[in-house]
Design a protein around this nucleic acid. Structure first.
Lengths: 258, 258
DNA sequence: GCAAATTTGTTCGTATGTATT
DNA sequence: CAATACATACGAACAAATTTG
């Protein structure tokens, strides 16, 4: 008398899937067939399938059936780079092979008052005016990440007026701020957390509506030559198709591996 | 005619929880009470609660009720440090306050043949003999991470015999290998992924059995002065109570914030 | 383009088991 | 031991999405 029946069914299916039969992409027997095979009710079979869904082993498509999930070759983003560097580097099998590059939408620019998270990350009082620049980023058409950068409004007053224009800043915001305000980024710090996606994120990344796939949330704070914080960038990556890399010291170039 | 009823119930409850009523830790009305409030069946109410569980908003305790989950103050681990550095640094509110330190079990040492992941990370052929050293790590009694390091058996043959003893190597394995084999770690690379926990991990970290809370998996490969890979460390952290930090360039010491 | 068949999604009702107080 | 509350399991019906004829 060990596990409940739905767990036993789920574990039997899991063993079969992990042994490669049915293979990734292939369809499982229908709920009615499984009901007969395991001599259980359809609801119990559905509980077993739900358990497998939560673990990412299968996915269901209404009107079609239940399928073994296929492994995605992940995008690899490197967090570490030159302190004065512009953006996060990305390596991925397809990019390397076909020299495709990330693509991003024009920014949506908003004036906001700094709320708790933003204020404490930038070390400014809550309610301080900030500019937020929000972009959707794609790789080869696939939604890759959502990025929002926050800058104190004071920078705009110091001449960095492009910050409040809804166009990309070339060759990069860090260079632009150095030129306009004399702010040089001498370092940055990333803080990485994992959480379930909100509705906007789930829709953009086309994540399953059940909130099973979580997202990486990377807070990057930029420091200038005076040790002051002048920029916060929050980047959200779906955890099912992304991998982050950080390195220290003397290491060879990144290849693709585990 | 928008969402199904269980979603509407879930979203109503979510709004209430996010507005702070009921507060974290407090109990929700029982399933039977909710059944009456929303004029739905108990099963539909349970579907709504399942949806909230998946998103980490509530948890159920058999015989007691359904409760709003409490936020955990996370452990913060810093990935970046000196290349020749020994271990990952940890900062956390309680540790800083009461100067508590991480605590780890004696290693479980095994001789293994390198499988796919290990072999490709260490750039050795599959089947090569390796030593694995597995440790459980706690902070103030709380399960914090599971760590397994893999070393090519060749290092043992070169004199690093402590690798196959089931005791901690003080002051650190990196120092020990420098002394015994002349291998100096000049850099390392971390690769961070997120996945659902396996059964061992779920049990050790006391994660909910439904696989909802995922884990960080950090692969750290150490490189020596010849650019060769001599060590792979795989560390697994439960994502609900951990946060990773990486920094580049000149940044002030870490404080606790978002 | 439409209708039928197939398959999963939602909702109800009911009964019994198990954990906690 | 009894009461309470969640967990599991069954059966049934209809809805919604998709494919097929």
């Amino acid at each position: 008398m060990a596990d409940p029946m739905y767990r036993q069914i789920a574990e039997d299916l899991q063993r079969r899937i992990e042994s490669g039969e049915p293979a990734p992409g292939a369809q499982l027997p229908t709920e009615l067939e499984l009901r007969e095979r395991y001599d259980a009710s359809r609801n119990t079979v559905r509980d077993a399938i739900k358990w497998l869904i939560t673990r990412g082993l299968v996915e269901t498509r209404p009107g079609q059936g239940t399928f073994v999930t296929e492994r995605i070759t992940p995008f690899v983003s490197t967090l570490t780079g030159p302190p004065e560097g512009k953006e996060t580097y990305v390596y991925l099998a397809e990019v390397v092979a076909s020299s495709r590059t990330p693509d991003m939408s024009d920014p949506r620019v908003e004036m906001q008052r700094a709320t708790g998270n933003v204020a404490s990350a930038l070390h400014i009082p809550e309610g301080t005016s900030v500019v937020s620049r929000h972009q959707q980023r794609f790789i080869d058409g696939t939604p890759w990440s959502l990025q929002t950068s926050f800058y104190p409004m004071a920078l705009v007053e110091q001449g960095a007026t492009k910050l409040i224009q809804a166009t990309s800043i070339e060759p990069g915001t860090v260079d632009y701020l150095a030129e306009k305000c004399g702010i040089k980024q001498v370092g940055y710090r990333d803080s990485i957390a994992v959480r379930p996606p909100n509705e906007v994120e789930a829709a953009f990344f086309k994540l399953p509506a059940d909130g099973r796939v979580s997202v990486f949330e990377v807070y990057r704070v930029g420091f200038d030559q005076d040790g002051a914080r002048f920029r916060l960038t929050v980047t959200v990556y779906p955890a099912d198709r992304n991998r982050l890399v950080a390195w220290v010291g003397d290491v060879p170039a990144v290849e693709l591996e585990d």
